[in-house]
């Protein structure tokens, strides 16, 4: 069972915080399909938010296919996030991110600078991949295939 908390100081609306916390718990594997979410009443009293806020969050999660409301029985997790990606590909991405973070620290960036950079890149329109990126991606796919079955690269 997940325990929600609502931070009133930030600018993120309360319902969006609840949605984020479920998504994060799914990504981190703290919630699995079949798990029950707290009842609306439980979230209302524990977080001191109104019922409409909780209902809005649960409805949004339902629309994105992550949970399902079972009539009279509560809300249950029905989907997964991130976990669907190939574990080898995840390891590979993680390794490259780790070396990228190393380079960024070397260049004098602080953690917040990196977060800002990632956010700004994520906000860019997807657009076409450059020839270089396509080549890099093809290369990655080849290596992922050839390294399958072998332990993936660990931390440097």
């Amino acid at each position: 069972m997940i325990a929600f908390h609502v931070d009133r100081a930030g600018s993120v609306p309360a319902y969006a915080q609840l949605v984020q916390q479920v998504r994060e718990a799914l990504r981190l594997g703290l919630l699995h399909p079949g798990d029950k979410l707290p009842t609306v009443r439980e979230v209302v009293t524990s977080c001191a938010v109104n019922a409409a806020t909780v209902l809005k969050a649960y409805r949004e999660l339902e629309l994105s296919g992550l949970v399902e409301a079972r009539q009279g029985a509560g809300t249950y997790v029905s989907g997964t996030l991130g976990g669907s990606a190939d574990p080898a590909a995840m390891d590979e991405l993680r390794g490259r991110l780790r070396s990228w973070v190393g380079d960024a620290r070397h260049a004098g960036l602080e953690d917040d600078d990196m977060r800002a950079l990632v956010t700004s890149v994520l906000a860019e329109p997807p657009g076409e991949l450059s020839a270089e990126q396509r080549a890099a991606r093809a290369e990655t796919e080849r290596t992922t295939q050839t390294t399958q079955g072998r332990p993936s690269a660990g931390p440097r």
Binding site: A9, A48, N50, T53
Partner: peptide, 27 residues
Amino acid sequence: GELLGEVADSDLTVVLSTHVVAELAGV
């Protein structure tokens, strides 16, 4: 929290006057 629970459980309407505006988010 308990007060909001009472609102959720019944047909109660609550008018809450406060100076602590930050605490009203989600309430």
